[in-house]
């Protein structure tokens, strides 16, 4: 346990264990690894952290992360400006970009509506989305299929209604290679709702 560690090392473990997804045990492992590294290597790591924090910021248009005035995607004139894909965080932008199937703009919500945790639309960039949506034809809501994802989708689609924007959500449900016979009914219902014309 951490009570065995003292002074600087204990402080480092404390600090690391505050990082998301890092428990006490992982923090100890990381700290012990770091102190065994050459000093230059650790200085470089520390400098990288400071530099990223200093230079990377959310794009003022879409909330995606960027080092420039606005992000690569918003700056790219070849992208379709009539469509916005709404995502939870910047990591989702990377995932969708990797699919290579999307050529429009993004909107990063900075979280997801999570009623049980008291996270509501006010805590996210929902108002900014409403402003942007006035100038587009379609808004795709690309959040995880979960209760929080459903709450977010239903809420946003309601706000979009009076704007006359087409609102779609990602089809979700049957995993590739899955067997229809073994699908549960929540998954099947979602897959039916998200069915596409062939």
């Amino acid at each position: 346990m951490a009570t065995d560690y003292r002074g600087k090392l204990a402080e480092l473990i404390d600090e690391l264990s505050r990082l998301p997804g890092i428990g006490r045990r992982s923090a100890q492992r990381l700290a012990l690894y770091l102190i065994r590294q050459p000093l230059e290597r650790v200085e470089e790591l520390a400098a990288k952290m400071v530099e990223s924090r200093r230079h990377v910021h959310p794009c003022p248009h879409c909330g995606n992360l960027s080092e420039d005035e606005c992000c690569d995607i918003c700056a790219d004139q070849s992208r379709d400006r009539s469509i916005i894909c709404v995502v939870e965080d910047a990591a989702a932008v990377i995932s969708i970009e990797r699919s290579g199937e999307y050529g429009g703009l993004y909107h990063v919500l900075g979280g997801i509506i999570s009623p049980l945790d008291g996270v509501g639309p006010e805590d996210l960039t929902v108002n900014e989305l409403v402003k942007r949506a006035k100038d587009v034809e379609e808004v795709i809501i690309a959040v995880n299929p979960s209760v929080e994802g459903d709450a977010t989708t239903l809420y946003i689609s309601k706000l979009m209604k009076p704007l006359g924007v087409k609102v779609t959500r990602l089809a979700s449900g049957l995993p590739v290679g899955g067997d229809l016979e073994y699908a549960d009914s929540v998954t099947l219902a979602r897959a039916l709702l998200g069915r596409t014309e062939v």
């Binding site: 009623p115 049980l116 209760v147 459903d150 709450a151 239903l154 809420y155 309601k158 549960d184 009914s185 929540v186 219902a189 709702l193």
Partner: peptide, 24 residues
């Protein structure tokens, strides 16, 4: 294994919001 999926709770924001208050 599934007993009651309560599909409609997730397709209507008012029903969803009320169910979540109950759950909380």
């Amino acid at each position: 294994s599934e007993l009651n999926p309560f599909h409609q709770l997730r397709s209507n924001p008012l029903r969803l919001a009320h169910s979540l208050v109950i759950v909380e």
